[in-house]
Design a protein around this nucleic acid. Structure first.
Lengths: 193, 193
DNA sequence: CGCAACACTTGCAGGCCGTGCAAGCTTTAC
DNA sequence: GTAAAGCTTGCACGGCCTGCAAGTGTTGCG
């Protein structure tokens, strides 16, 4: 059975999704300046005030849900063998996560289209939680064997994230499979630039 | 002598700087929520409307001027030998530019302090012009010899930028010289992770 | 069932950001 | 000295976002 709490969570998630869809549809069909909170709320059949019970900002509704949450990433890293080199752990973990994209590729399409028309959307949204993501991973990587110092850890993290995002972006533009591009990117990093 | 246009430009730059200083001082002394456009304008002795003749947004006044402009970076890359490997060009250019930081370290201090208290400031400001910066460099790197494809170029750029920013951040936190950390970071990338 | 606790939605009021416009003022050009 | 060009400012307005309190549904329990 479904507990009342689960029920509430599910309905909430559904409504959040519905609002998002309305927002993106307006932004794509009528231009981003037409996607005001008022217009989105009307389309989603809620009051403008309620919109902010679901999203902390208008922008949040116009970008896709982040693919990775910090806690999840930390769990996955912790699940790797403790003596595995940090670089290989990052490689394995980001590969697992990136592959998940293939399953939701269809859902991502409108967001990708919108982002390509308005790059500032992705930039701002990304910066906010991506730096936090990298900071948390940085803390994990620091304590791995073979990591000689803080700058080493920083470079490992920033290069791995960069490779992952590059592969995803390139895959979106060229249509090549994410896995192949990801392997190519990490192989370059492994063998040296 | 000074042409009238130069004179105007200079006065404008001075005023911009003065407004910035007022903004950062308020944000540091009284908290960031006290740094409203109204308060900043009053402190800088201009009208709130005029504030927006100098800055497109309030945030712009609270972060430091970007260290690198795209055109400048492209010029510097173009000045490198055309047959130099892309990685070495990036290494040399970012090193030159990063060293410039040592000359303006003092001016940067308030901004660094403010950014450390409010990370979202740096995140948003950075994302906006940093992605544009990387896109332009990407185009240059793509046409360098030895760059085998788009993903190769992407990884080169994102890793180099990541290394540079890591070195700068680490230097700010640890006090070690930027050059040393930069060398260490690029050496890691060169030999492979 | 009935009632109390809880969660969700909404309106209202208000602060803040950012922009177009037009009026005034200062500097520059001839 | 006068016209053109640039800068500053006030005004009005639209849009984002928040706290608060009132209203409406939902849940849990006797």
């Amino acid at each position: 059975m479904e507990s009342p709490q689960q029920r509430r969570d599910r309905r909430r998630a559904e409504k959040r999704r519905a609002i998002r869809m309305a927002a993106v549809r307006i932004a794509l069909d009528e231009g981003i300046e037409a996607a005001t909170v008022e217009a989105i709320s009307a389309a989603a059949d809620i009051s403008p005030r309620t919109f902010f019970n679901y999203f902390a900002s208008k922008e949040e509704a116009l970008v896709m849900e982040p693919l990775w949450r910090p806690e999840e990433l930390i769990d996955l890293l912790a699940a790797r063998p403790a003596d595995e080199p940090a670089f290989q752990s990052l490689r394995a973990v980001t590969r697992d996560l990136a592959v998940r994209i293939n399953g939701i590729w269809g859902d991502m399409k409108p967001f990708i289209e919108l982002r390509s028309r308005h790059p500032e959307l992705a930039a701002k949204a990304r910066a906010a939680d991506e730096t936090k993501l990298m900071d948390t991973v940085f803390e994990v990587v620091r304590s791995r064997p073979g990591v000689t110092g803080r700058i080493h850890a920083r470079v490992l993290v920033v290069a791995s994230f960069g490779a992952t995002i590059s592969a995803i972006q390139e895959s979106q533009e060229s249509g090549e499979p994410v896995e192949r591009l990801l392997d190519e990117a990490f192989a370059l990093l492994e063998k040296g630039l």
